[in-house]
Design a binder for these strands. Structure first.
Lengths: 147, 147
DNA sequence: ATGAATGCAAATTATTTGCACATCA
DNA sequence: TGATGTGCAAATAATTTGCATTCAT
């Protein structure tokens, strides 16, 4: 018997499960809660560690579900490692700080039109895109300047 | 004793090896040649298959070297599979057709300025970025229209 | 000669799958 | 109850590593 949600992501996930005729289980709620408590981005492994009582396979199955439902998105790190991050709906891109590792979203930035226009000059119809930006965040930038 | 190169990528790679004090071996040349003969993008596995006489580990080691030297770049497919593709130096992005699988480069498209400007409003200093575009290429688009 | 490169097999890492058991509707 | 979900352990897939051997300089 699931507890009250207390977190928008958890609530939305549970609501959507019902909508899609998936079952609302205690384990799914735990996974969603663990996701909500992670930092800006995390690995499947980190989730497993945060959920020692939940089997790895189940963690992976639910992460996949969360991705399919649009609650999580995949983030490819510069070194090729795959991370996940809570997906802010709508177009957005990731600003990944290579100094402290934090990731933030790039807001108010619509490339879709520009991308489509550029690609169309080569006859290519853009249907989707991913953008990852690497660099240093405000904090790390100011620390570098200070020292 | 290595043969004459006959392909810019192979020649450039061999030249750079010397420059960096790596050894110019027959195996390295074979790997470079196989890379040059791949389609627009390929997996490490495909290279291994094209080079049955070369050990997997060696293929991986040399792919890594090619990436470090900037001759190859990683391409993340929509399904998460990692491919490689010959890197056209300078900024460029990939147009990956999800219908036929071909990848082409998006030319004459400099986002760096725009990206930096947008990110700077959040105090983020962009140092690098990746962009992958998914959609359909000219050929697949026209086929879809025709049918 | 001697240190780097290679091949092979074993080790890792990340993820998926089969199946018996538990749980939700 | 009856299907869906879960845990576990085994299976896979992708990549890396250890080490004896080979090769380039």
């Amino acid at each position: 018997m699931p507890t009250k949600a207390h977190h928008p992501l958890v609530e939305d996930f549970l609501a959507r499960l019902e909508e899609k005729d998936y079952r609302h289980t205690g384990t799914r709620e735990e996974v969603a809660r663990a996701v909500a408590q992670q930092g800006s981005h995390f690995t499947a492994e980190a989730l497993c560690e945060a959920l020692p009582r939940v089997g790895r396979a189940t963690v992976y199955r639910n992460v996949k579900l969360l991705v399919e439902m649009g609650f999580l998105c995949r983030v490819l790190m510069e070194d090729g490692e795959l991370h996940y991050q809570v997906s802010h709906k709508g177009h957005h891109h990731h600003l990944i700080c290579t100094y402290c590792g934090q990731s933030q979203d790039l807001l108010n930035c619509d490339f879709q039109g520009l991308l489509k226009e550029k690609a169309s000059t080569q006859g290519f119809e853009v249907e989707g895109h991913t953008v990852e930006l690497y660099g240093r965040c405000r904090t790390c930038a100011s620390e570098a300047t200070a020292s």
